[in-house]
């Protein structure tokens, strides 16, 4: 297992290098520049000012030189300063927003798992009953209604009508509604995946064998069905975790969360190259780490996978 982990960690290097290179090229090939009117809030800079900004940030140098400088600094975890938030390093920007996004993301994932898994198991065990149909209906709604609508709905109900939560982001209570809004879609997805997976396992021969051997239903379900049914769920939890903890622009915008969700979109719109690169690499790193954790978790869920690793 240790060798496997080391090998996977070493694999991260070429993966991240590839991500960095492709992002760098796409970013520079895309039309527009950080000093376009669109990037500067509608104000077209004079060519002389534009030249001074290019000079300040080394954008007047050949692309290959820029790439070399970028890679050299990235190895030292120095992604440079944002063009937009002048004087602020990308690491500082990510460092400021990530804790907020991560807190909400972890809460959302917990919510998704705590609600999604039991609902999925319940629906599978009550296959084709009212309970199954009801859960199917609710999860379909949760999954298909846009996050934006759920977010506004929650604000109207819990902040405006009931007055239980502040509308603006103020204290610990302000984490609850964003987590619910963010987690509801994932909960629905996990519930549906769990249901399908458990249904499939229920039809497996080893389940029939366990029952034939006289094992109690509870033991069959907990020891065999749920444990095996969780493997596909584990697969999606990794990327879901990465997506949730890095924030989403919609949720953060509606609830005024000072997270990093909007960074990605904002940096692309304003062609803030250092932030685009930093956020992309950070996101790629989290995905790779989450996938590694999931792969390790497979081993605990199913010893056969551990043996093959």
């Amino acid at each position: 297992m240790f060798r496997y982990i080391v090998r996977r960690v070493l694999w991260m290097i070429p993966v991240l290098w590839m991500v960095a290179t492709v992002t760098f090229l796409m970013m520079h090939w895309a039309p527009g520049s950080p000093w376009d009117a669109k990037s500067t809030g509608g104000r077209q800079l004079d060519p002389a000012l534009e030249a001074s900004f290019n000079r300040q940030y080394g954008l007047d140098k050949p692309l290959l030189v820029q790439y070399g400088t970028y890679l050299k600094n990235a190895v030292l975890l120095d992604f440079g300063d944002s063009y937009k938030q002048r004087g602020k390093s990308v690491t500082e920007i990510i460092g400021q927003g990530f804790p907020y996004s991560a807190k909400i993301g972890v809460l959302a994932l917990l919510l998704a798992v705590v609600i999604g898994v039991p609902v999925g198991i319940y629906a599978a065990l009550r296959h084709n009953t009212f309970g199954d149909y009801a859960s199917l209906f609710i999860t379909t709604i949760s999954y298909t209604v846009p996050e934006f609508v759920i977010a506004i709905f929650l604000l109207v109900v819990f902040s405006v009508r009931l007055g239980w939560m502040p509308v603006l982001f103020t204290d610990w209570r302000s984490y609850i509604l964003p987590a619910v809004a963010l987690g509801s879609g994932s909960a629905a997805y996990i519930a549906r995946l769990t249901r399908a997976s458990v249904l499939e396992v229920l039809r497996e021969d080893f389940v029939t064998t366990a029952r034939a051997k006289g094992l109690r239903n509870r033991a069959v379900i907990t020891r065999h069905v749920v444990r095996n049914g969780m493997i596909p769920v584990l697969t999606v939890i990794g990327p879901a975790f990465a997506a949730l903890v890095t924030g989403t622009i919609i949720i953060e915008r509606v609830f005024g969360v000072p997270g990093m969700g909007r960074l990605f979109i904002d940096s692309i719109t304003s062609r803030d190259y250092p932030v685009i690169m930093g956020v992309t690499l950070f996101y790629a790193f989290i995905i790779v780490v989450c996938n590694l954790v999931v792969d390790i978790a497979y081993g605990f869920a199913d010893p056969r996978i551990r043996a093959s690793q």
Partner: peptide, 17 residues
């Protein structure tokens, strides 16, 4: 306060925030 969403800002205004 820094609220980018006009919908949220309006709700907060209605709540006297």
């Amino acid at each position: 306060k820094e609220v980018e969403s006009p919908e949220t800002a309006l709700l907060a205004y209605q709540q006297n925030e």
